[in-house]
Each structure stands twice: as C-alpha cells, then as structure tokens.
Design a protein around this nucleic acid. Sequence first.
DNA 1: CTACCTGCAAATTATTTGCCTTAAC
DNA 2: GTTAAGGCAAATAATTTGCAGGTAG
Lengths: 143, 143
Amino acid sequence: MSNKEQEVLEKYISQHNLKITKQRRAVLEAFLNCEDHVSAEELYKIVSAKEPKIGLATVYRTLSLLTESGLAAELDFGDGQKRYEMNYAHEHHDHMICTECGKIIEFHNEVIEKLQEEVAQKNGFKMTSHKLDLFGICKECQQ
Amino acid sequence: MSNKEQEVLEKYISQHNLKITKQRRAVLEAFLNCEDHVSAEELYKIVSAKEPKIGLATVYRTLSLLTESGLAAELDFGDGQKRYEMNYAHEHHDHMICTECGKIIEFHNEVIEKLQEEVAQKNGFKMTSHKLDLFGICKECQQ
DNA sequence: CTACCTGCAAATTATTTGCCTTAAC
DNA sequence: GTTAAGGCAAATAATTTGCAGGTAG
C-alpha cells in the first residue's frame, strides 16, 4: 500500500509536523477505493466497516486534510452537503448531474475552458478555479 | 407600486389560493431594491428596517415563494448559504466571484452556452439548467 | 515525553417546522 | 367565518469544536 496517493499525503503530513495514524490511512484508502463524489457521511459508513471505532469528526477532519494536501477536491451540487472527489493526477473536468437518479457524468471541453479564460481576462479577473455543472435528465432516466 | 414583479407574484398567489400580505409585499420590495445576490439573512435585515416585527422564517418562506413563482433564482457559491437573485425579465448569465472581496461580476457568453448544449446532447443528456462560476481575484483586489 | 490526534458530546450555522394567534378574502 | 400566513421557539441537518485521554515520532 505504498501508492502515489499515500506518498503525497505523507509528504504533506511530515511537512506540516502532523502525524500518520491508522485512521488517516483508513480514510484515505476508503476514499481511493470508493466511487467518486462521496459525501463525508457516506465515507464514514464505508470506513466504519474496517475501523468501527472511528468517529465522524475524524472523517471530516481527514477530508479537510486531503483537500489541503491537494489529494481531494470539494464539490457542491447544491443538495446541502459537500462531496469529494479524487484530485491527484486527475485532470480537470466538469459535471453533468441527473436530477432524477443523482448520477454524475464527467466531461471535459477544451474550447469551453479557453473561452472561460478569455472572459476572465477581458474583465481583468485573475481566475484561480472554476466550476461548470449541467443539471438535467440522463439518457437512462428518459426511458 | 404596481410594477411587473408585483403582478407576477400576485398572479402566482391567486392561482395557488394563497394570500397577499404586507410582509410578502415588503420582502418583495426589499428584494427588488437591494443589490443582487442577497442571502436570506441579509434580506431579513433590510426588511426589518421597514417591518420591524417580521420574522426570519417569513423571509425564508417568502423567498421560497418567489423562487417557485419564478421571480427569484437560488444561487449557491459554496460559502454555506444560499443567495438569491432577480430572475424575472432577466436574461441568463454566469458569475465571476472574487474570493478576496466577495464581489460578483455577471457575464454572458453565447458560445459557451452553445457548447454546453452540444456536450449535453452528445451524451444523450437532456439539460434543464446549468451554472458556471469562475472563482478568482477581481481587478481591484489585484491592486 | 511532547505534541498532535481521536472519540465523544456539545456547539454552530443555515434553514425548516410546529403551533397557536392573527389577518386575508 | 374559513383558511392560509405570521411570529416565535424548538427541531433539523451538516459540519465544527472543546476537551480529556491516547498514540505517533
């Protein structure tokens, strides 16, 4: 279990005088093996299977750590809870969210990206990040 | 005060067997006169000036009513609270959010809109709405 | 051993709901 | 006069924090 993600996390941890614990390893491992776009609560349930005594607060704290270390990215689809996805060695993409079944389809469009940069520049705006979400009904849910 | 927005709201209200009250009028009026992208709490403070006995719950309830009636649109910039903007006789636009000062710049780019439609279609996705937010530093905050 | 980390419970924050009184129609 | 609306306080829901004991380095 000495994969790239472990390395990145441990590098961040040692650079910040923090400690590697079995709870942090467990959360990271569960996060890597679960489907994308998990919520804290969902991840908590998954981790609990392997580490029954872990607390929900620890999952929240570890997700913050993963976000700060650059391994995870926070998502917010406006449903009242934050979701997280893998962000390391993962190229940028946007989301289509099916409002029927909740499925999330990822996509990437270089031209849209370029145009966003252009719009920002035209307004003297120094863009640091962006998000594009399309809401609608996926193919399957249309019957 | 018999403007278009009042008419739209009153039409919605009568069609749904609801009632026109001075609180609802006050919230709508404050909403129309305030800057875009208010939160419920902000609007509550504004309305309180004219209608001191109004409750925060009423502001929330009226904002839902405005959203259902199509007058307002909910926004979520991921800062933990919903914001609202005028949505009636207001063409679609996207947002640039300054992460320094919180300022919001609106923009509209037809080509981006078209490309979004294309991406959706290519995936058999029936898009009902979308949101594009650019985060960064505005011209003023760069000095 | 010295911080940092954890689990737990309590605190917070934004928003919603229950209930009883009041006001629209 | 019905019935929805309002005010207020209590309830939720997601997330954060305080603290006392546990553990990594």
